[in-house]
Simulated scan of single mutants.
Amino acid sequence: MDDDLDFWQRLLRDQHGVVTRTQLLARGFTDHGIQAHVDAGRWQRLHEGVYVTYSGPPTAEARRIGALLACRGGAVLSHETAGELHGFVAPDDQRPIHVTVRYGCSAVRLDGVKVHRSRAFAHIGSEGAPPRTNRVHTVLDLAVAAPDAREASRRAHQYALDAGVHPLALERAAELRRPPRHGRAVADAVALLRDGVLSPLEHRYLVDVEQAHGLPIGSRQAPVLVDGVRRYEDIAYDLPGGRAIVRLDGFGGHRDPRTALVDRRRSVAAVLVGVPSVPFGWLEVTTLPCRTAREVEALLRPLGWDEPLALCPRCP
């Protein structure tokens, strides 16, 4: 009897106080007894056949477990919910719980739950509890769910960086699932990651400054020697007349003295070898990309770049 009690207590602990009707019947409860607990307010009905065994608002953990238990035939947490658990999506109690079930699973309608279906269900899960999609497939889910291709590319790039997903892993996941939506946008994000575009600011510089204005595409993460140590510049333009460097300083780039010192030494090293370098921050790139493009043009003209500067829709 003690073993049965210990098992039941472990079950309640592991499932954050959420149980199914089947589990309750196996424990010895009757349908009448279950309903009596609900009517008395001691328990709450979370979904059809799924109950919370306490009063008060269900916790986020209970809501996740309840959504999984309500999907008969197996399910994993996915999309924003999986991203929250992996730590690269900010928690939000107002958004629905996202779960993914096998493709062909019968329709499931659950309050506060968004149900997705996947043909690759057997390949997208990760180890650990509660069951969830792995990091790379979570990134892919969020990108495919974007409202348009531009947002899909941004999500794939940003979330891959935040989740620590290698571009090759993202490419393989896309090949496995062949997403019908935004496949080209995901491939573009993979290309950016492979080319060393490693931050949202670098992405915006590429799209809004370089590509939008017909500037040459610089080399990303170009190696340079600074005080005998190999460092990396954000963007380097190698032209017939020499090299120019653009350094992108995002928010929080100089929060510690060591980082600030390294950046100052990179600037000194560039000047000493006669390489012009200019810094741009978030404001210049995202709010004033046209002005920034003209300033980069002025930097590159003396080095031999002779193509016309293109006008983007935002240009005067």
Rank of each mutant, 00 (worst) to 15 (best):
273 V>R: 15
238 D>N: 08
226 V>K: 03
52 V>F: 15
132 R>S: 10
78 S>A: 13
99 V>C: 10
68 L>C: 14
191 A>M: 11
287 T>A: 13
250 G>Y: 08
160 A>G: 01
308 P>D: 15
160 A>Q: 03
124 I>W: 08
161 L>H: 02
199 S>W: 02
179 P>I: 09
107 A>T: 14
23 Q>C: 08
152 A>P: 03
78 S>K: 00
313 P>H: 06
92 D>G: 11
86 H>S: 10
174 A>T: 06
76 V>T: 12
39 D>I: 14
65 I>Q: 12
237 Y>W: 15
293 A>Q: 03
83 G>K: 00
259 T>Y: 12
187 A>E: 09
265 R>S: 00
170 L>Q: 00
189 A>N: 05
120 A>H: 09
8 W>K: 11
292 T>K: 02
64 R>P: 11
222 A>N: 10
216 P>I: 04
248 L>I: 10
79 H>L: 12
313 P>A: 02
25 L>V: 12
125 G>T: 11
282 W>V: 02
188 D>G: 09
40 A>Y: 10
86 H>E: 13
35 Q>M: 09
285 V>Y: 07
105 C>F: 07
18 V>Y: 06
115 V>W: 00
253 G>E: 15
180 P>L: 12
217 I>G: 05
80 E>S: 13
162 D>E: 14
236 A>Y: 02
211 Q>V: 15
13 R>W: 07
271 V>M: 15
215 L>D: 05
202 E>T: 04
110 L>S: 00
162 D>C: 07
50 V>K: 03
74 G>C: 08
16 H>N: 01
240 P>H: 02
56 G>V: 02
303 L>A: 03
275 V>T: 14
276 P>F: 10
51 Y>F: 13
55 S>K: 15
265 R>N: 11
235 I>L: 14
91 P>T: 04
2 D>Q: 12
198 L>F: 00
301 R>L: 13
42 R>A: 08
131 P>K: 05
126 S>F: 10
257 P>N: 11
3 D>A: 14
257 P>D: 15
104 G>R: 07
284 E>L: 06
218 G>D: 03
230 R>V: 14
244 A>T: 01
58 P>R: 06
78 S>L: 02
168 L>R: 12
210 E>G: 09
115 V>F: 06
238 D>E: 14
91 P>W: 04
264 R>A: 15
135 R>F: 00
293 A>N: 03
107 A>P: 04
83 G>T: 04
66 G>V: 10
116 H>S: 13
191 A>W: 01
47 H>I: 04
220 R>V: 09
44 Q>E: 01
279 P>K: 05
252 G>S: 11
37 H>Q: 14
293 A>F: 03
194 R>S: 01
43 W>F: 01
312 C>S: 14
94 Q>T: 14
9 Q>T: 13
232 Y>T: 02
128 G>Q: 13
260 A>I: 09
286 T>M: 07
234 D>I: 08
108 V>P: 07
104 G>T: 07
43 W>K: 10
19 V>F: 03
167 P>W: 06
251 F>P: 11
33 G>H: 11
17 G>F: 05
290 C>Q: 05
263 D>N: 06
85 L>T: 05
163 A>G: 05
89 V>C: 08
